[in-house]
Amino acid sequence: MAIFAQISDTHIGGSDESVERTRQVMEHLRTLRLDAVLVTGDIADHALPEEYTIAEELLRDERPMAICPGNHDAVPEFEKLLGPTNQALRLDDLTIALADSSVPGHHHGYLADETLSWLDEVLSERPDVPAFVGMHHPPIELGIPYVDQIRLREPERLADLLSRHPHVAGVLTGHAHTAVSARFAGLPLVVAPGVISTCLTNVETEAEIPVSYDLPPAYALHIFDGRQLVTHFRPVFLKYS
């Protein structure tokens, strides 16, 4: 049994609240009995060095952690404090590989050849151990035009790779700032909610940029028994003195 949390889209530096939201989410996660913590992108908002300095301190955790960049991040600044942009956790009974889907200067996602090669290599290491693959950009349309136009490009490249690794149990992403459960390449696809804000569907709002900052930050709590993934989505209600 593996229990791990996934947060996404902290956007440190985008507002004063970004730091406080991230701090309180991480404080909450530290009260849980987790095997690992994942952070699926958009760590910083403007990719400034000082934003990553703050993020590195806020995200520090004694448990195994993997972090990948998003479209708001910059690889050089990310790597200085948060490590390589492709990161893998090799737990006793589970592999979690977070890949870099960011494209410098653009908001859409793409898995470069070298990233797919890295992912293929990680997944080939322990073919008898279940694995999850994660990245920032969702590989499918989510029904939110604002997000769908900057989703992962050429997702069939990822689907082809996954088809060669039958021990992969699911795909985990961020980017959309909303909790989503779907399917991709015959596998469960979970999109983590946002820490900084929540993106709404056109059923809920007519705004051109459908983002709410009034809803609380949230995270995904994944429970995997070796065969089936169960995900709980939990808000973190902010406390102010």
Rank of each mutant, 00 (worst) to 15 (best):
S241T: 12
S197V: 02
L111G: 01
M65P: 01
L116C: 07
V19R: 11
D113Y: 13
I144T: 09
T198M: 10
I144C: 05
V129C: 11
K80Y: 11
L29I: 12
D45C: 08
A179V: 04
D214V: 09
D128G: 14
F78R: 09
G143H: 08
G14F: 08
P188L: 11
H11W: 06
V195N: 04
T95H: 02
A220F: 05
V211H: 01
P69G: 11
A66T: 00
L34H: 01
Q6V: 07
S101V: 07
A207N: 12
N202P: 14
F184K: 03
S117L: 14
N202R: 15
W118H: 06
L59Q: 04
V122T: 11
A169G: 11
E114S: 13
V133K: 05
H11C: 05
I96Y: 02
S241Q: 07
P193N: 09
L229H: 08
E206N: 11
N202Q: 15
A99M: 06
S241L: 13
I96L: 10
A182H: 14
G13T: 06
A192E: 01
A169P: 12
I54H: 03
L187E: 01
T85Q: 08
E156V: 10
E20L: 15
E154M: 06
L142T: 04
S101C: 05
H165K: 08
Q6A: 00
H167N: 14
F4S: 02
Y146T: 08
L94D: 03
P49A: 13
K80L: 15
T201R: 15
I7M: 08
A5N: 04
A169C: 14
L91E: 04
H106K: 15
M1K: 07
A169R: 15
P155Y: 09
H175T: 07
D92E: 09
T53N: 03
T205I: 13
V19G: 02
P139R: 06
L34M: 04
S181K: 13
R30M: 02
